[in-house]
Design a protein around this nucleic acid. Structure first.
Lengths: 319, 319
DNA sequence: CCGCTTTAAGCAACCGGTTGCAAGAACCTT
DNA sequence: AAGGTTCTTGCAACCGGTTGCTTAAAGCGG
């Protein structure tokens, strides 16, 4: 059994409250006793039980981070940035994955609720209404979603989409396929919104799709058949799957069809052709989300981070 | 404020212990009262506080999962499998990333200690001694590491390495570079051990290296200069970086140098040339680790999972 | 040397639940 | 109808800490 505060108290003939103060309010205890207590604690290998402490203080110094799919390379940089930022603030981040399932997402939030001081909700799949309800149990910061009165970190997807469409237009493309993501994805809506405003382009919409390589493979035939000379995909995984699918049909990228993704994930950089993509500031978003959670009196500050177009090899002049 | 057990008790004029039993031992409470309590609980939106419950029961129904680097695509399938397996057992998995830093690893284990019933330690970077010491605080299952008396899930790396070396030998390669991973990596040692037993091959060792794309890029020049016609790399990321580095030096893969990685991660499947690799049973390992943690009376069962060679395009006949 | 302020430590209630024990009520059995 | 069971519920201690209040000791000015 691990040593408790009582063991330490007994070991150096002092009351438990003195031991407690030695750790949580050192200035209230005599330096001499403090030393004795610390020695005894060290000797017994005592470490304060954070869960028990949280029961009275109401603060756990933990935060939860919920993502739709850990296997999507978009998330790891965000997660790592959040963890390291939190570490600098004496916090720990626990990560969980919902498998793109809103039911699991709700369940996880409920589990986290009492064990963390707040939750970073990345690309949630739950309805706004449900999120608002759950926010009564635990403070949220939402990433890539706008919910009234709730702190949020947004990436300027619309601006990125515009960059991408301008790039394609400049290359002479007119008919462009827009391959969207899952239902309920804010990012997907933003993209469509931005695209709808583009003038002089002939857009074809495909969706919803799984935001994975498989999703890209699956829509490849439809995209090939629609007569578009360029594709704007919901994310890089989808784009890579699409390229894979097109290659299998002997359709060359970028010679016959240009492809642009979103996110700027590692496989896109290694792929041949290297993927042209809209880079999302994932790491910055992770750091921001942590700061927002710790600062916010729950108030709904919204931070918007700009995106960048990274032109590589998967886009070229229209045939 | 969220409703507590007391609120519910008051709301239906019953003692807190009755409310408690309604949730944790329903058969001990009269069906009629139970219904009333459940109604009141539902009405107030009451949910038992898992952390508080854990204080008395000693069980949190949470487990921790610690990985060296979430951004390494090897881990996500393992994580997802563990999470879904745990979910089926009414457990939740909290993930944390150590950034390949043993200090952070230790800190994380200590943080987890009282908040979970056990920790799955994947490819730990801590010393055996330290791990044994920490095991006094919280039960472990170790993945990809053998520690006496501790439950472990191992992947048969030696067998995989042998498969890979046989494959290369059959293609006529004799001088083979072995590009290893980080210090303290059990996997890396296993590989080297297996390689050392291979007869008739001329092996050149490079290491330690960061198990990332960057690590591969960095050793590429040395590997190119050593005269080997084939490379066995610690993992796929390293292999991909290596291929990238070799291409930059105008060295063709597999025409001039063949490359084999370990793990079978997604970018390897999308890369050109598609990467020949030793597939690790990551998902199975994740499931196994969860089961081992839940079954084990802490006893040191060891499970070894076999690996598979997947021949794709990055290996060819020796020039 | 006295009374007053500081400082240090103990006491006990509390956080949100769980659980062994005991008491009262209802139900049987003979 | 008496005595023994079984059900149901309440009581109170406990899990591992924290914290407001109280008290005892020490420090200090005059």
């Amino acid at each position: 059994m691990a040593a408790t505060i009582k063991d330490v108290a007994r070991a150096c003939g002092v009351h438990v409250s003195t031991v407690s103060r030695t750790f949580s309010a050192p200035h209230l205890v005599n330096p001499a006793t403090r030393t004795r207590v610390l020695a005894a604690a060290d000797d017994l290998g005592y470490r304060p039980n954070r869960a028990a402490r949280a029961l009275t203080t109401g603060r756990t110094f933990n935060m939860g981070l919920i993502v739709a799919d850990i296997a999507n390379p978009f998330f790891p940089p965000l997660i790592k940035a959040a963890q390291s930022q939190a570490r600098g603030r004496d916090y720990h981040v626990f990560v969980a994955d919902t498998d793109e399932d809103p039911g699991v997402e709700e369940e996880l939030i409920r589990t986290f609720a009492k064990q963390v001081d707040g939750v970073l909700l990345c690309s949630p799949r739950l309805s706004n209404k449900m999120i608002e309800r759950l926010a009564e149990d635990v403070p949220f910061v939402v990433v890539n979603r706008r919910i009234k009165g709730m702190p949020a970190v947004l990436m300027n997807v619309a601006q990125g989409a515009k960059l991408a469409l301008d790039h394609l237009a400049a290359l002479g493309h007119h008919r462009i396929a827009l391959v969207s993501g899952p239902i309920g994805s804010w990012t997907s809506n933003e993209m469509q919104g931005a695209a709808a405003e583009a003038v002089g382009l002939d857009l074809v919409f495909f969706g919803p799709n799984q935001p994975t390589e498989g999703g890209g493979l699956a829509v490849a035939p439809e995209v090939a058949a629609c007569g578009a000379t360029a594709v704007l995909a919901y994310n890089d995984l989808l784009a890579l799957g699409l390229i894979e699918g097109l290659s299998a049909m002997e359709i060359g990228v970028p010679d016959q069809i240009s492809v642009i993704g979103f996110d700027d994930i590692l496989p896109g950089r290694l792929n041949r052709p290297k993927l042209t993509t809209v880079a999302m500031p994932a790491a910055a978003a992770g750091r921001m989300a942590v700061d927002l959670l710790l600062q916010s009196g729950g108030e709904g500050a919204t931070v918007t981070l700009d995106t960048d177009l990274i032109v590589r090899e998967s886009t070229g002049r229209a045939p």
